[in-house]
Amino acid sequence: IVPKETILATNTSSIDLNEMGSVLKRPERLVGMHFFNPAPVMALVEVVQSTETDSEVADMVFSLAEQWGKNPVHVRSSPGFIVNRAARPFYSEALAILKEGGTDAATCDAIMRECGGFRMGPFELMDLIGLDVNYAVTCQIWESYQRHPRFAPSVLQKELVDSGRLGRKSGQGFFEYGVDVEMQAPKNAPESPAPASIILEGPEKLPQSLLKLIEGGSLKTKSNSGNGIIRLPAGAAVMISNGKSSTERSLDLEENVISLDLCLDYFQSPRIALAPASQCSANALQEAVGLFQSLGKLVSVLKDIPGMVLTRTVAMLSNEASLLVQEEVSDAAGVNLAMRKGVNYPQGPLEWAEQWGLFSVVETLDNLRKFYGERYQVSSWLQQKAKHN
């Protein structure tokens, strides 16, 4: 039907190019050219190759996308390509957090936006996409990967879809929509007095942005050796989450722990999230809340679940990104670029893992796996990278 030199470029977001190519006389001329909505605005193009695609064909399409001002990445054909697969934890972790009662949808969204730098939170984004569409993509990828638990669809989302609550297009989803409907606001902790002083135990083990925040405040601060703990006058230890619940860490360390959720930049973030152990006193929690309020932050107090909100989400985003590299779907630079340009992530997942510390990512995933199971199994690629770093 077409000349032999013709290139067949498909914009499919999900169909296996190997399957498409199997019915062609010249499968080496088939390539994926997956744009993102809205195509005139979004910079990413996934250039997808089947096992038969001629590398010269893929390179030609890659160069064409560059000439159009796009940011192309090379991808091996596999379910979800890069973006639709690597983004699954952004939704699935939020749904798991909501199911466990870790916090409400509006507060979770606020933490993801304000602490994580994402343009939209997972629940408002699912409502925008359409819960039926998002659920269908999740199911498709879950089936494509032999129903691996890390891709398992959420019962909560299915119930909403089955009831016709599809998000903005139906007027109801995780949130209510309408002319006179006010959007649900995140829950902020009430004002609490700041502690008179704090002790930084091992300040060199705390993130630089957190140290900058504390040093810029007016609190009396003392430093000594330790493992990266903010010690409050009531004796409680404020510690950055490592994937364990605060209660479990309290039992391990035999002291009162309040976990601090991950932040892209503690100094710049307008919000901080805390999770006190079950045995934490009201006075100790008030001191922790007051500490960060005195530093100009809104504070969200979460139920004590492993990994909090951003910690477990970024750990899983990093893990899925590492699996894409491990399976040679793309390289690390391609995965990072795809997530920045395709879904506007503030950083590529593997860039964020490097900033956080690969050892900390692996430790977090290991602790989550011990509590929840196989869903949080860390990739061998990430384990090896952590050892070398």
Rank of each mutant, 00 (worst) to 15 (best):
L44E: 02
E28Q: 13
M20H: 05
L30S: 06
V31W: 10
V47T: 00
A65I: 00
L44F: 07
S22T: 04
M42C: 08
P27E: 04
D54A: 12
D54M: 09
N37K: 09
S55A: 15
T53C: 06
D54T: 05
V41S: 05
A65N: 02
L24S: 06
S22R: 10
Q67H: 09
L30N: 01
H34G: 02
M33L: 12
S50H: 03
Q67R: 14
D59E: 15
L24T: 02
M60D: 10
Q49D: 03
S55T: 15
V23W: 08
N18I: 00
F36S: 02
L24H: 06
R29I: 01
K25Q: 14
V23E: 10
V45K: 07
V48L: 05
G21E: 05
F35W: 14
M42S: 07
D54C: 09
K25R: 12
A43T: 03
L64R: 12
L17A: 08
M20L: 15
V57Y: 11
L30W: 03
L44P: 01
S55H: 13
E28F: 06
E56C: 08
D54E: 12
E28M: 05
V23R: 11
D59W: 06
G32Y: 03
E28H: 12
G21A: 04
G21C: 02
T51P: 00
S63N: 14
M60N: 12
T51L: 12
S63C: 10
K25Y: 07
S50L: 11
L30V: 00
M20A: 11
E46Q: 00
D59K: 11
N37F: 11
V45S: 09
S55K: 15
D59C: 01
H34N: 12
L64A: 15
M33Q: 07
A43E: 10
A43K: 13
M42W: 10
A65T: 02
L17H: 11
F62T: 00
G21V: 02
D54Q: 06
M20E: 02
V41Q: 09
E52M: 08
S55C: 09
L24I: 02
F62G: 01
E66V: 08
